[in-house]
């Protein structure tokens, strides 16, 4: 359990992207689980134990922000990092209202993602 609070879940519909992210983050010693679709994350038995969630904004079933809504409704309080191919003002606005302040644009230059994840994992857990 103490182990899992350092675990990271990634949801991205692009298989190569999620595998590459898993590979890069695991090479740093992070514990990473990936999902290709939003419902798979919602059904993940470890859902409440992740220390950080990385969610792609643009997915076919639901957009990333709808997934965030669903997570928050279920009481998942882990910090969420949104990744996207293109961030626009409207999306940033919605994300801000959903309480997400980290939005990273692909192709995720350098160590931006791992820095964001590490600071999310280091932050004290949000009040439920």
């Amino acid at each position: 359990m103490g182990q899992l609070s350092r675990a990271v879940a990634i949801v991205d519909d692009d298989a190569a992207v999620r595998h590459a992210l898993k590979f890069a983050l695991e090479s740093e010693g992070l514990n990473v689980r990936v999902h290709g679709r939003a419902p798979a994350l919602l059904d993940d038995p470890e859902l409440y134990r992740y220390g950080c969630l990385v969610i792609d904004y643009r997915m076919p079933d639901v957009d990333g922000l709808e997934l965030v809504d669903a997570l928050r409704r279920r009481g998942v309080s882990a910090p969420i990092i949104m990744i996207t191919g293109r961030a626009n003002a409207g999306m940033r606005e919605r994300a801000g209202r959903a309480g997400i302040d980290t939005i990273l644009e692909k192709p995720l230059s350098d160590s931006a993602l791992s820095t964001a994840i590490h600071s999310a994992l280091a932050a004290p857990p949000a009040a439920p």
Binding site: D14, A16, V17, H19, A20, L21, F23, A24, L25, E26, S27, G85, K106, P107, L108, S109, S111
Partner: peptide
Amino acid sequence: QPLTAINNYLRG
């Protein structure tokens, strides 16, 4: 998308 994959594979 592929650039993200390439970049992250290489970083790993």
